[in-house]
Amino acid sequence: MPLDHTPPLNSLGFAKAPADTRVVVAMSGGVDSSVVAAMLAEEGYDVVGVTLQLYDHGAALAKKGACCAGLDIHDARRVAETMGFPHYVLDYENVFKDAVIDEFADSYLGGATPVPCIRCNERVKFKDLLETAKDLEADCMATGHYIQRKMGAQGPELHSAADANRDQSYFLFSTTPRQLDYLRFPLGHLASKADTRALAAKYGLSVAMKPDSQDICFVPNGDYAAVIRKLRPEASDPGDIVHVDGRVLGTHEGVINYTIGQRRGLGIGGLADPLYVVKLDPEAKQVVVGPKAMLSTRTVPVREINWLGDDDLMSRPEWHIAVRVRSTRPPTDAILRPISATEAEVELLTPEEGVSPGQACVFYDTDSSRIYGGGWIHKG
């Protein structure tokens, strides 16, 4: 029987030495992606660091706490210098504006609650940057996301992070099987963020204690309204605050200042029962309010589905799964009823409040950490 001389798989899953394995690391300048790059460099991989300049970093230089700003590009470069691997900055400003920022503004004005970080992963990082990694003849691309890639019977599977508090599966549901084949997530198995910071300190990285970014990178201080006012001035047009029964209860200074589920700051005091924003109608310039019960949703229409199951989505009339309809909520039991390969109706077994068009509905296995993809909630 001939001897098998195939070398063992390295930590990234390739049957060759780390030194012969090129990996592009998407570096935001934060501690997570910096640790990934440093870890792989120390293991002997042929690491190439790439940072995307996504918007005017001249304006961003004064802003801390958002990824891909000027200071963050500087931090990523310092990590590369410390660990001795090349680092490149790519100008993706126009792509980012067209693929992410403009849609963010338009969907918000359409009464939706967009999640631009998902679109950025889908349309920029895991599309254009991934193709750039292939152009650089990299074997794979690694990121600092907290999610796990595991090999299953039919190829790579997407699984939740070991640390539920850091899990980023909600933001990565649209990762396609082809992308998943090329991507690696070296931090997904870590028990806590403290472990990541300890690794950063071990590697002597200047970003070891750098705070996590809290805001969407192009929304300073979380002020969505200010950004959209700048992009779409008509968002500040005044209009009426209207009860669902048709009564005009007051006026507002632009639908952009309101969100679905909002109760405080409506300026319509003196009512016996509290009212909540249940609908935004930008065309009619109306903020529609009603009782809390109207926020409760059981049926969720979903489209643009990215399905990651082993069996075809249409192979069953119903899938008993768990779904997450907001990034801040745990998965809840649901029934997924496919309409087509990219559309479905999701029945929540326990109704949820504040389910909004424009947000994602992510599918989870009820018996394991596996993610079956997801789709976008629409108005139906």
Rank of each mutant, 00 (worst) to 15 (best):
R298V: 07
L295A: 07
T332L: 08
L308W: 00
R316H: 13
N306E: 12
I321V: 12
L336W: 15
S327K: 10
P338R: 05
G309N: 13
L295F: 01
P301F: 11
R329H: 10
L336P: 03
A334C: 15
M314Q: 14
P317Q: 15
P317W: 05
P338F: 03
R303Y: 02
E283V: 13
P291T: 12
R326Y: 03
I305T: 07
K279M: 04
M314H: 03
P291E: 12
K285V: 09
K279H: 14
T297M: 01
D281I: 03
V302Y: 10
A293W: 05
P282T: 01
V325W: 03
R324G: 05
S315H: 08
R329Y: 08
K285C: 11
D333W: 09
T332G: 08
Y276C: 09
D333F: 00
S315V: 04
A334E: 13
Q286M: 09
R298H: 13
E304G: 11
M314D: 03
V287G: 02
P282H: 08
P291I: 07
P331D: 00
T332I: 13
S315P: 12
D333Y: 06
P282C: 04
R324D: 06
V300C: 01
A284Y: 07
W319F: 11
P291A: 09
R316D: 09
R316K: 15
I335T: 12
P330A: 13
P301I: 14
A284S: 11
M294I: 07
K292M: 09
T328L: 01
P282V: 04
K285W: 08
Y276D: 04
L336E: 02
P331V: 02
I335F: 08
V289D: 01
P291R: 14
S296P: 03
T299A: 14
R303P: 00
R326I: 00
D281T: 10
V323C: 11
D281M: 04
E304F: 09
V302E: 06
P317G: 09
R337H: 11
V289T: 06
Y276E: 12
G309E: 04
D311F: 07
M294W: 12
V302P: 03
G290S: 08
V288Y: 04
K285S: 11
A284N: 11
G309Q: 11
D333I: 03
S327G: 12
L308M: 09
T332Y: 04
G290Y: 00
P317C: 10
A322S: 12
T332V: 14
K292C: 05
E318V: 13
G309I: 13
K292D: 10
